[in-house]
Design a protein around this nucleic acid. Structure first.
Lengths: 135, 135
DNA sequence: ATACAACATAGAGTTCCCTCTATGTCAAGG
DNA sequence: CCTTGACATAGAGGGAACTCTATGTTGTAT
C-alpha cells in the first residue's frame, strides 16, 4: 500500500509537519510520485513505528538519524546497528530501574501524606468533639 | 546546616544557574543573609531532592511550581498536594508499563538482528567454503 | 474553467529547560 | 589598600523537537 502524507500522518499519529521534519532530519526518505508528492509505503510505516519506539525510550533524534543512515547503507551495517540497539537496551534497562526506584519513593511519600492528613482529620474531629461536648 | 549557593550547587549537582533559575520559577525560596546572599538549609536540600525526583519522572517545571506553591501555603493544602502526587503516581505507573513494553519489543528486535547476522555469517562462510573448494 | 483541498518548500516561531554574559557588590587575604 | 573570588541581578543565548506561516503548485470535482 502507498500513502499520501495526509493519510500517513493520520495512520502514524504524527502530524504532517513532523513527518516533513523527520524527512529533513533524514530519519525517513519516502519515495515521490510524478508530481513530487511523498509516497509512503508499509515499510515506511514499520520504520516509523520503530522510530516512535526509540523516541519513546528517550533516544534523541540525532542518534536515530545515525541508525537511519546505517539502515540505508544496507546489510553491511547490521553489526553496528545491533550495537546501537544493545547499547540502547542498557539505557532503557537503567531507565526502568530508576523509575521503579522513584515509584517506590513516591509511594512512600504518598503513604506519609495520607497519615499526615489522617492525623489532621483526627485533631479536627477531636476539636469538633470537644466543641460538641462543650457546647 | 546552612549552605551558600556554591556549596549547595555541589551538594545537589545542580549548577548555580539552575538553582537561580528554579528560584526565579518559584520552585524554591532560600533565605538570604545580611548581605543578600542565598542561605540554603537542610530542608531546602530535602525539597530539592524531591524536585529532582519529580523532574526525573517527567513532571514539568510548571506542575512542580504548582506543588511548591501549595507547599508554601501550609497544611491546608495537604489534600491537594496528595492529589497531585496520586495523579503523578498514575502517570509514573503508566510510564513504567510503556517502557517495559518497549523493552520487550527491543529485545525481540535484538534477537532478530542477531539471527540475521548469524545467517549472514553463515552464507559468507559457505561462499568462502565454495571459494576454497573451487580455488 | 474554476474553485478547492491537499500537497510542496523555505524559513520563522514556540516551548521547555536550562546556561551563559554583562555588569555590579561585597568580604576576606596578601 | 587593593585584588580576588564568590556572590548578586537582568537579560541574552542555546539546543532539542517540534509547529506554524507564507507562498506556490497540483489533481479533482462541479
Amino acid at each position: 500500500m502507498k500513502y499520501s502524507i495526509g493519510e500517513f500522518s493520520r495512520l502514524t499519529n504524527l502530524g504532517i509537519h513532523t513527518l516533513r521534519y523527520y524527512e529533513q532530519e533524514k530519519l525517513i526518505s519516502p519515495e515521490r510520485n510524478s508530481a513530487n508528492r511523498r509516497c509512503y509505503n508499509d515499510k515506511d510505516m514499520a520504520w516509523i513505528a520503530f522510530i516512535k519506539r526509540l523516541k519513546a525510550t528517550g533516544m534523541p533524534i540525532k542518534e536515530i538519524k545515525r541508525y537511519a543512515q546505517l539502515r540505508s547503507s544496507g546489510n553491511s551495517s547490521l553489526n553496528e546497528r545491533l550495537e546501537i540497539l544493545i547499547q540502547h537496551r542498557q539505557i532503557l534497562d537503567d531507565q526502568i530501574k530508576q523509575l521503579k526506584e522513584h515509584q517506590a519513593k513516591l509511594n512512600e511519600k504518598i503513604e506519609f501524606y495520607k497519615e499526615e492528613i489522617a492525623s489532621q482529620n483526627l485533631s479536627i474531629q477531636s476539636t469538633f468533639r470537644k466543641e460538641t461536648i462543650f457546647l
